[in-house]
């Protein structure tokens, strides 16, 4: 099995109202030097080794997991052995 971890964030240049609010909250709590907070989504799932390919995962991200109009994505994969 392959474990796939997908990270989705708003594109650079697209204002992130949630990120801005949380950044302001950190600064208000006196955490200094915080900037450019972006809030995103994390998804993880498993795939059969035979079905998994970069092309396949990219296609999933483009078609459903991220909205390419406003979001960027990146992903990591790792081999896992199921019990």
């Amino acid at each position: 099995m392959v474990k796939v971890k997908v990270y989705v964030t708003l594109k650079e240049g697209v204002l992130d109202p949630q990120g801005k609010a949380v950044e302001q909250a950190l600064l208000a709590k006196d955490f200094k030097g915080v900037s450019d907070m972006r809030i995103g989504k994390y998804m993880e799932f498993y795939m059969d080794r035979d079905d998994h390919s970069d092309r396949n995962i990219q296609s999933m991200c483009k078609q459903l997991l991220a909205n390419p109009v406003i979001e960027d994505y990146r992903y990591e994969t790792e081999e896992v052995v199921h019990q």
């Binding site: 204002l15 992130d16 109202p17 949630q18 909205n67 406003i70």
Partner: peptide, 8 residues
């Protein structure tokens, strides 16, 4: 596309 309202 739609984003969360600016005022959240």
């Amino acid at each position: 596309a739609m984003k969360r309202n600016a005022g959240l």
